[in-house]
């Protein structure tokens, strides 16, 4: 299948720090793409720049051939890209249901209809038992799940997950991976940022490795993990062989 997202020569600096030096790659329609790299290698900056939260210093981003470079975040979301924040950002004083209703309102004018869709997304995300909990009372990993649930309720064609599995125990991690697989089976393309390599290898069809704002490798997960440069730059330090 063709590319859903085409990124060409994307650049983003903060003062003297080149967080994205010159990044180009395509994301294929329907795949789960793993995006890995050491801390500070530019993964979150990539998400934020594609989503319009940061204005790129150069380069292009196209979604299904349509140029979305520099669009404001709301327009990127409306074009079909949903994202989670690495440090989750629920609407703290709203309940889980009210949080998700906000995103379900993208496709609906009436709150009742949005609520129906929101309840479905909450069920899928496994948050039903917290549906009426104010999100400030959720533990961190549930907040991340809520972020994911809100993104899901947008019915995106591309979903970017920035370390949504952090802080989960192995069992919860398995459930989380199953959830991402299920979402993907619904036809949603996924960019999956994660530090636990086992999760990346078991979930992703393909992996892109960032290092210091550059792309270091791009390929099939097992092959990438054995790439010498990757091992040296990244896995040498924090590879968890479990």
């Amino acid at each position: 299948m063709g590319a859903i997202l085409e990124v060409k020569n994307l650049k983003k600096s903060f003062g003297g720090i080149q967080a994205l030096k010159d990044v180009s790659f395509d994301v294929a329609e329907g795949e789960i793409l793993g995006l890995i790299g050491p801390n500070g290698s530019g993964k979150s900056t990539f998400v934020n720049t594609v989503c319009g939260l940061y204005r790129p210093d150069g380069g292009q981003v196209a979604l299904r051939g349509k140029n979305i470079t520099g669009l404001e975040p709301a327009m990127v979301a409306r074009a079909g890209i949903a994202r989670t924040f690495q440090a989750s950002r629920p609407f703290l004083n709203l309940t889980v249901l009210d949080n998700v209703i906000v995103s379900a309102l993208l496709d609906e004018t009436l709150v009742d209809a949005a609520e129906k869709n929101a309840r479905q997304a909450i069920e899928v995300a496994g948050l039903s038992q917290y549906i009426n909990t104010k999100s400030c009372n959720l533990p961190v990993e549930k907040r991340k799940r809520l972020d994911l649930c809100r993104a899901l309720a947008l019915k995106p064609s591309l979903l970017m997950l920035d370390e949504v599995m952090a802080g989960l125990n192995p069992k919860e991690m398995e459930d989380g991976l199953d959830l991402v697989r299920a979402i993907n089976r619904q036809g949603v393309t996924v960019i999956f940022i994660e530090h636990v390599m086992k999760a990346v290898v078991s979930l992703c069809h393909r992996v892109v490795v960032f290092d210091q704002g550059c792309m270091l490798a791009d390929g099939e997960p097992h092959a990438v993990m054995q790439d010498e440069r990757v091992v040296k730059a990244y896995l040498g330090g924090s590879y968890k062989p479990c």
């Binding site: 989503c51 939260l53 404001e72 975040p73 709301a74 327009m75 979301a77 409306r78 949903a82 994202r83 924040f85 950002r89 629920p90 609407f91 703290l92 004083n93 709203l94 009210d98 209703i101 906000v102 995103s103 309102l105 993208l106 004018t109 009436l110 709150v111 949005a114 809100r150 993104a151 947008l154």
Partner: peptide, 26 residues
């Protein structure tokens, strides 16, 4: 207050970036 506008305003009040990431044209 309880219609789409009120929901969107609440989202904006809580976290404008998060609201925008959900397609709210703040």
């Amino acid at each position: 207050e309880h219609a789409k506008m009120g929901r969107y305003l609440a989202a904006i009040r809580e976290d404008q970036d998060a609201a925008e990431s959900l397609g709210v044209q703040t």
